[in-house]
């Protein structure tokens, strides 16, 4: 089941979807007649990692916590930049060449949109409860290390 959250002022939309993310028409979600720039980022599963071949990544997600963390992240980015923002992440299987995360931001001028997208993906990687199990071409599987959420 796909899960989405948005704020009352329509400044951001974030969500989790089953399977790969669609990369088309993302810009429509952030279009604004007062905004002259739209920046987009697609995170795509690649066919190698740390010297090993990869065929897919299986994303494990804590839905409740991940949606909360995505919402807080969107709020932080929107506080730092005057943008409209959309962030969507996959859960489950995503194959090589398919997008696992898509982010788009629009702003009056390009620097804010570009900065917002860059900060959003940097923070997503260290704040949102999502885990990667990499699957090799012969179905060998391994969990990838990540960033600890522990504060004590």
């Amino acid at each position: 089941m796909d899960l989405f959250a948005r704020n009352e002022g329509e400044r951001y939309v974030c969500g989790l979807i089953d399977g790969p993310c669609q990369t088309s028409d993302l810009d429509v979600l952030v279009q604004d007649p007062a905004h002259g720039a739209i920046a987009q980022f697609f995170g795509v599963v690649r066919n190698h990692n740390e010297g090993l071949s990869a065929a897919a990544v299986d994303y494990d997600v804590h839905p409740e916590l991940a949606l909360k963390a995505l919402s807080e992240l969107c709020q932080d980015v929107c506080a730092d930049y005057p943008v409209k923002l959309v962030m969507i992440h996959s859960r489950g299987l995503v194959r090589v060449g398919e997008a696992s995360v898509v982010i788009a931001a629009s702003s009056a001028h390009r620097k804010d949109a570009l900065g917002a997208v860059s900060d959003a993906i940097d923070q997503l990687k260290i704040r949102v409860p999502i885990w990667k199990k990499e699957i090799g071409p012969d179905d060998e599987q391994r969990w990838l290390d990540g960033h600890s959420l522990r504060k004590d």
Binding site: L65, H89, K125, I126, I130, W131, W143, L149, K151
Partner: peptide, 26 residues
């Protein structure tokens, strides 16, 4: 517990917790 991350000194109120290893989204 639920949607709250817990520090080690706190106590849980229910009987279910989630165990979250280091995160690796993207």
């Amino acid at each position: 517990e639920g949607d709250e991350l817990l520090k080690d000194h706190v106590t849980v109120s229910g009987q279910e917790v989630s165990l979250l290893p280091p995160v690796a989204g993207g």
